[in-house]
Write a protein that binds this DNA or RNA. Structure first.
Length: 297
DNA sequence: ACTAGCCCCTGTCCGC
DNA sequence: TGCGGACAGGGGCTAG
Protein backbone atom coordinates (compact mmCIF):
# COMPACT_ATOMS: atom_id res chain seq x y z
CA UNK A 1 0.00 0.00 0.00
CA UNK A 2 2.83 2.29 -0.11
CA UNK A 3 3.49 5.51 -1.82
CA UNK A 4 4.51 8.58 0.10
CA UNK A 5 0.98 9.56 1.24
CA UNK A 6 0.27 6.07 2.55
CA UNK A 7 3.59 5.85 4.38
CA UNK A 8 3.03 9.30 5.88
CA UNK A 9 -0.41 8.17 7.01
CA UNK A 10 1.09 5.10 8.64
CA UNK A 11 3.73 7.27 10.32
CA UNK A 12 1.07 9.55 11.77
CA UNK A 13 -0.88 6.55 12.97
CA UNK A 14 2.06 4.93 14.71
CA UNK A 15 3.56 8.07 16.18
CA UNK A 16 1.21 8.53 19.17
CA UNK A 17 1.78 4.95 20.28
CA UNK A 18 5.45 4.56 19.49
CA UNK A 19 6.95 7.85 20.55
CA UNK A 20 8.06 7.65 24.12
CA UNK A 21 7.20 3.96 24.32
CA UNK A 22 9.61 1.35 25.61
CA UNK A 23 10.00 -1.70 23.41
CA UNK A 24 9.76 -4.43 26.00
CA UNK A 25 10.09 -7.34 23.63
CA UNK A 26 10.30 -8.03 19.90
CA UNK A 27 8.95 -11.14 18.20
CA UNK A 28 10.71 -11.70 14.91
CA UNK A 29 8.78 -14.56 13.40
CA UNK A 30 10.97 -15.39 10.41
CA UNK A 31 14.60 -14.81 9.47
CA UNK A 32 13.96 -12.56 6.50
CA UNK A 33 11.51 -10.46 4.59
CA UNK A 34 12.85 -9.11 1.34
CA UNK A 35 16.27 -9.04 3.00
CA UNK A 36 17.52 -10.94 6.04
CA UNK A 37 16.91 -9.13 9.30
CA UNK A 38 20.05 -7.60 10.83
CA UNK A 39 21.98 -9.78 13.25
CA UNK A 40 20.37 -9.87 16.70
CA UNK A 41 17.64 -7.54 15.43
CA UNK A 42 15.15 -8.30 18.18
CA UNK A 43 17.69 -8.13 21.00
CA UNK A 44 19.07 -4.84 19.80
CA UNK A 45 15.63 -3.24 20.08
CA UNK A 46 14.59 -4.64 23.41
CA UNK A 47 14.47 -2.22 26.36
CA UNK A 48 15.00 0.73 24.04
CA UNK A 49 12.75 3.77 24.16
CA UNK A 50 11.41 5.19 20.89
CA UNK A 51 12.34 8.85 20.54
CA UNK A 52 10.75 9.63 17.16
CA UNK A 53 8.92 8.14 14.19
CA UNK A 54 10.04 9.69 10.93
CA UNK A 55 9.70 9.20 7.21
CA UNK A 56 11.99 9.64 4.23
CA UNK A 57 10.33 9.03 0.86
CA UNK A 58 8.57 5.67 1.29
CA UNK A 59 10.71 4.62 4.26
CA UNK A 60 9.62 4.77 7.88
CA UNK A 61 12.31 5.50 10.44
CA UNK A 62 11.88 4.48 14.07
CA UNK A 63 14.45 6.29 16.18
CA UNK A 64 15.68 4.74 19.42
CA UNK A 65 17.25 6.24 22.51
CA UNK A 66 20.60 4.57 21.92
CA UNK A 67 21.14 6.24 18.55
CA UNK A 68 19.93 3.32 16.46
CA UNK A 69 17.24 3.70 13.81
CA UNK A 70 14.98 1.02 12.39
CA UNK A 71 14.51 1.64 8.66
CA UNK A 72 11.29 0.02 7.53
CA UNK A 73 9.89 -0.28 4.04
CA UNK A 74 6.37 -1.55 3.38
CA UNK A 75 7.06 -2.97 -0.07
CA UNK A 76 3.82 -3.56 -1.96
CA UNK A 77 1.72 -5.17 0.74
CA UNK A 78 3.19 -4.25 4.10
CA UNK A 79 1.06 -2.78 6.87
CA UNK A 80 1.28 -1.99 10.56
CA UNK A 81 -1.43 -2.81 13.06
CA UNK A 82 -1.84 -1.32 16.52
CA UNK A 83 -3.25 -3.49 19.28
CA UNK A 84 -3.59 -1.83 22.65
CA UNK A 85 -4.57 -3.56 25.84
CA UNK A 86 -6.96 -0.76 26.71
CA UNK A 87 -5.91 -0.99 30.33
CA UNK A 88 -3.60 1.02 32.46
CA UNK A 89 -0.58 -0.88 33.61
CA UNK A 90 -0.52 -2.29 37.09
CA UNK A 91 3.09 -2.10 38.19
CA UNK A 92 4.70 -5.49 38.29
CA UNK A 93 2.06 -7.15 36.18
CA UNK A 94 2.14 -7.89 32.53
CA UNK A 95 -1.22 -8.80 31.19
CA UNK A 96 -3.22 -8.35 28.11
CA UNK A 97 -5.08 -10.85 26.07
CA UNK A 98 -2.84 -12.72 23.78
CA UNK A 99 -4.65 -13.03 20.49
CA UNK A 100 -3.49 -15.44 17.89
CA UNK A 101 -1.05 -14.15 15.31
CA UNK A 102 -2.64 -13.47 11.95
CA UNK A 103 -1.25 -14.85 8.72
CA UNK A 104 1.83 -12.93 7.57
CA UNK A 105 2.42 -11.21 10.89
CA UNK A 106 6.22 -11.10 10.74
CA UNK A 107 7.31 -8.72 13.49
CA UNK A 108 5.60 -7.84 16.77
CA UNK A 109 6.82 -4.98 18.95
CA UNK A 110 5.55 -5.35 22.51
CA UNK A 111 5.30 -1.88 23.99
CA UNK A 112 4.86 -0.02 27.22
CA UNK A 113 3.61 3.29 25.91
CA UNK A 114 4.39 6.73 27.24
CA UNK A 115 0.87 6.87 28.66
CA UNK A 116 1.41 3.66 30.58
CA UNK A 117 -0.50 1.15 28.49
CA UNK A 118 0.68 -2.20 27.27
CA UNK A 119 0.19 -2.88 23.61
CA UNK A 120 1.71 -4.15 20.43
CA UNK A 121 2.43 -2.87 16.99
CA UNK A 122 2.52 -5.63 14.40
CA UNK A 123 4.11 -5.62 10.95
CA UNK A 124 2.19 -7.72 8.43
CA UNK A 125 3.32 -8.27 4.85
CA UNK A 126 1.85 -11.05 2.67
CA UNK A 127 4.19 -10.56 -0.26
CA UNK A 128 7.26 -9.90 1.86
CA UNK A 129 8.64 -7.19 -0.42
CA UNK A 130 9.00 -5.03 2.66
CA UNK A 131 12.03 -5.05 4.95
CA UNK A 132 13.52 -3.78 8.18
CA UNK A 133 17.10 -2.68 8.58
CA UNK A 134 19.13 -0.94 11.28
CA UNK A 135 21.25 2.17 10.96
CA UNK A 136 23.07 4.58 13.22
CA UNK A 137 21.17 7.86 13.45
CA UNK A 138 24.23 10.01 12.75
CA UNK A 139 24.85 8.01 9.57
CA UNK A 140 21.22 7.70 8.54
CA UNK A 141 21.48 9.86 5.44
CA UNK A 142 24.40 7.79 4.21
CA UNK A 143 22.62 4.48 4.61
CA UNK A 144 22.52 2.65 1.27
CA UNK A 145 18.72 2.60 1.28
CA UNK A 146 18.46 6.37 1.73
CA UNK A 147 21.63 7.92 0.35
CA UNK A 148 20.55 8.00 -3.28
CA UNK A 149 17.08 9.41 -2.75
CA UNK A 150 16.00 12.56 -4.51
CA UNK A 151 13.98 15.52 -3.36
CA UNK A 152 10.90 15.17 -1.14
CA UNK A 153 7.80 16.41 -2.94
CA UNK A 154 6.43 17.60 0.41
CA UNK A 155 9.29 20.05 0.90
CA UNK A 156 9.54 23.55 -0.50
CA UNK A 157 12.35 22.88 -2.93
CA UNK A 158 10.39 21.11 -5.66
CA UNK A 159 9.58 23.88 -8.10
CA UNK A 160 9.72 24.35 -11.85
CA UNK A 161 13.37 25.27 -11.85
CA UNK A 162 14.45 22.21 -9.88
CA UNK A 163 12.20 19.87 -11.83
CA UNK A 164 13.58 21.27 -15.08
CA UNK A 165 17.12 20.59 -13.95
CA UNK A 166 16.20 17.05 -12.88
CA UNK A 167 14.53 16.18 -16.19
CA UNK A 168 16.80 18.02 -18.59
CA UNK A 169 18.52 15.71 -21.08
CA UNK A 170 16.57 12.70 -19.78
CA UNK A 171 15.32 10.66 -22.69
CA UNK A 172 13.30 8.19 -20.64
CA UNK A 173 9.52 8.51 -20.78
CA UNK A 174 8.26 11.20 -18.43
CA UNK A 175 6.44 8.61 -16.36
CA UNK A 176 9.59 6.57 -15.82
CA UNK A 177 11.53 9.67 -14.78
CA UNK A 178 8.91 10.56 -12.17
CA UNK A 179 9.04 7.04 -10.77
CA UNK A 180 12.84 7.26 -10.43
CA UNK A 181 13.39 7.65 -6.69
CA UNK A 182 16.80 9.24 -7.32
CA UNK A 183 15.10 12.30 -8.83
CA UNK A 184 11.92 12.74 -6.77
CA UNK A 185 11.55 10.39 -3.81
CA UNK A 186 8.18 9.03 -2.78
CA UNK A 187 6.10 9.01 -5.95
CA UNK A 188 4.69 5.69 -7.10
CA UNK A 189 2.44 4.40 -9.83
CA UNK A 190 -0.79 6.00 -8.63
CA UNK A 191 0.41 9.51 -7.93
CA UNK A 192 2.59 9.73 -11.02
CA UNK A 193 -0.44 8.92 -13.17
CA UNK A 194 -2.56 11.42 -11.26
CA UNK A 195 0.04 14.21 -11.37
CA UNK A 196 0.56 13.79 -15.11
CA UNK A 197 -3.18 14.03 -15.68
CA UNK A 198 -3.42 17.15 -13.53
CA UNK A 199 -0.60 18.73 -15.51
CA UNK A 200 -2.05 17.65 -18.86
CA UNK A 201 1.18 15.90 -19.83
CA UNK A 202 1.61 12.59 -21.63
CA UNK A 203 3.38 9.82 -19.71
CA UNK A 204 4.93 8.78 -23.02
CA UNK A 205 6.79 11.95 -23.90
CA UNK A 206 10.50 12.09 -23.35
CA UNK A 207 11.15 13.63 -19.92
CA UNK A 208 13.62 16.22 -21.12
CA UNK A 209 11.11 17.79 -23.49
CA UNK A 210 9.40 19.75 -20.72
CA UNK A 211 12.61 21.04 -19.12
CA UNK A 212 13.30 24.08 -21.24
CA UNK A 213 16.69 25.82 -21.34
CA UNK A 214 18.62 26.21 -18.07
CA UNK A 215 18.05 29.96 -17.91
CA UNK A 216 14.32 29.73 -18.59
CA UNK A 217 12.47 26.64 -17.28
CA UNK A 218 9.54 25.54 -19.40
CA UNK A 219 6.16 26.51 -17.94
CA UNK A 220 5.18 22.84 -18.24
CA UNK A 221 7.85 21.91 -15.68
CA UNK A 222 6.40 24.52 -13.36
CA UNK A 223 2.91 23.13 -13.84
CA UNK A 224 4.07 19.56 -13.30
CA UNK A 225 5.91 20.49 -10.10
CA UNK A 226 2.74 22.14 -8.83
CA UNK A 227 0.63 19.13 -9.85
CA UNK A 228 2.96 16.73 -8.03
CA UNK A 229 2.94 18.75 -4.84
CA UNK A 230 -0.82 19.24 -4.91
CA UNK A 231 -1.69 15.61 -5.55
CA UNK A 232 0.63 14.47 -2.77
CA UNK A 233 -0.79 16.99 -0.30
CA UNK A 234 -4.36 16.14 -1.29
CA UNK A 235 -3.66 12.43 -0.84
CA UNK A 236 -2.04 12.91 2.57
CA UNK A 237 -5.03 14.97 3.66
CA UNK A 238 -7.29 12.09 2.58
CA UNK A 239 -5.25 9.53 4.52
CA UNK A 240 -3.82 8.00 1.36
CA UNK A 241 -5.50 5.51 -0.97
CA UNK A 242 -6.91 2.16 0.13
CA UNK A 243 -7.12 -0.27 -2.77
CA UNK A 244 -6.77 -3.86 -1.67
CA UNK A 245 -5.44 -3.38 1.86
CA UNK A 246 -6.07 -1.23 4.84
CA UNK A 247 -3.73 1.69 5.06
CA UNK A 248 -4.06 3.08 8.54
CA UNK A 249 -2.42 1.49 11.53
CA UNK A 250 -5.76 1.67 13.38
CA UNK A 251 -7.48 -0.31 10.61
CA UNK A 252 -9.41 2.57 9.07
CA UNK A 253 -9.29 3.36 5.36
CA UNK A 254 -7.83 6.16 3.33
CA UNK A 255 -10.24 7.69 0.87
CA UNK A 256 -8.15 9.29 -1.84
CA UNK A 257 -9.08 6.39 -4.15
CA UNK A 258 -12.42 8.14 -4.55
CA UNK A 259 -10.56 11.12 -5.98
CA UNK A 260 -8.65 9.30 -8.71
CA UNK A 261 -8.88 11.08 -12.03
CA UNK A 262 -7.26 8.35 -14.14
CA UNK A 263 -5.77 5.59 -11.99
CA UNK A 264 -7.76 2.36 -12.31
CA UNK A 265 -10.30 4.12 -14.55
CA UNK A 266 -9.59 2.37 -17.87
CA UNK A 267 -12.41 2.88 -20.36
CA UNK A 268 -14.11 5.55 -18.29
CA UNK A 269 -14.57 9.13 -19.46
CA UNK A 270 -11.84 11.69 -18.86
CA UNK A 271 -12.95 14.01 -16.06
CA UNK A 272 -11.40 17.16 -17.47
CA UNK A 273 -14.07 19.70 -18.33
CA UNK A 274 -14.73 19.72 -22.05
CA UNK A 275 -12.24 16.95 -22.86
CA UNK A 276 -14.57 14.11 -23.82
CA UNK A 277 -11.69 11.62 -24.04
CA UNK A 278 -11.51 8.14 -22.57
CA UNK A 279 -8.98 6.92 -20.02
CA UNK A 280 -6.60 4.38 -21.51
CA UNK A 281 -4.40 1.80 -19.86
CA UNK A 282 -1.00 1.07 -21.35
CA UNK A 283 2.05 -0.72 -19.96
CA UNK A 284 5.31 1.16 -19.42
CA UNK A 285 8.32 -0.72 -18.08
CA UNK A 286 6.06 -3.46 -16.84
CA UNK A 287 3.58 -1.29 -14.94
CA UNK A 288 0.16 0.02 -15.85
CA UNK A 289 -0.13 3.64 -16.90
CA UNK A 290 -3.54 5.28 -16.95
CA UNK A 291 -3.95 8.46 -18.96
CA UNK A 292 -6.14 10.38 -21.38
CA UNK A 293 -4.52 10.64 -24.79
CA UNK A 294 -6.93 13.41 -25.75
CA UNK A 295 -5.82 15.99 -23.19
CA UNK A 296 -2.44 14.75 -21.99
CA UNK A 297 0.11 15.85 -24.56
C1' DA B 1 25.64 6.47 -17.71
C1' DC B 2 21.51 5.14 -19.08
C1' DT B 3 17.32 1.93 -19.86
C1' DA B 4 14.42 -2.18 -20.18
C1' DG B 5 13.39 -6.38 -18.33
C1' DC B 6 13.20 -9.75 -14.91
C1' DC B 7 12.74 -11.14 -10.30
C1' DC B 8 11.25 -11.50 -5.47
C1' DC B 9 6.13 -13.30 -3.15
C1' DT B 10 1.16 -14.05 -2.09
C1' DG B 11 -3.55 -13.09 -2.98
C1' DT B 12 -7.38 -11.99 -5.91
C1' DC B 13 -9.99 -11.81 -9.88
C1' DC B 14 -11.46 -13.12 -14.45
C1' DG B 15 -12.24 -16.18 -18.33
C1' DC B 16 -12.68 -20.79 -19.82
C1' DT C 1 -15.93 -25.70 -8.89
C1' DG C 2 -11.35 -25.80 -10.61
C1' DC C 3 -7.48 -24.10 -13.04
C1' DG C 4 -4.35 -20.98 -15.44
C1' DG C 5 -3.00 -16.47 -16.34
C1' DA C 6 -2.85 -11.62 -15.48
C1' DC C 7 -2.34 -8.31 -12.27
C1' DA C 8 -1.32 -5.60 -7.80
C1' DG C 9 0.70 0.52 -4.30
C1' DG C 10 8.08 -1.37 -4.89
C1' DG C 11 12.71 -1.65 -5.87
C1' DG C 12 17.11 -4.20 -6.62
C1' DC C 13 19.84 -6.45 -9.93
C1' DT C 14 21.43 -7.66 -14.58
C1' DA C 15 22.30 -7.31 -19.27
C1' DG C 16 22.34 -4.73 -23.03
Amino acid sequence: MPELPEVETVRRGLQPYLEGAVIERVEQRRPDLRFPFPDRFAERLESRRVTAVGRRAKYLTIHLDDGAVVISHLGMSGSWRIEMSGEAVIPGEFHYERSKAAAHDHVVFHLLTASGEHGRVVFNDPRRFGFMLLAEERLLDEHPSLSGLGVEPTGNSLDGELLSSLLRDKRAPLKAALLDQRLIAGLGNIYVCEALWRAGLSPLRSAGTIAGPPDKPDVRAEELATAIREVIFDAIAAGGSSLRDYVHADGSLGYFQHSFSVYDREGEPCLRAGCGGTVERIVQSGRSTFFCAACQR
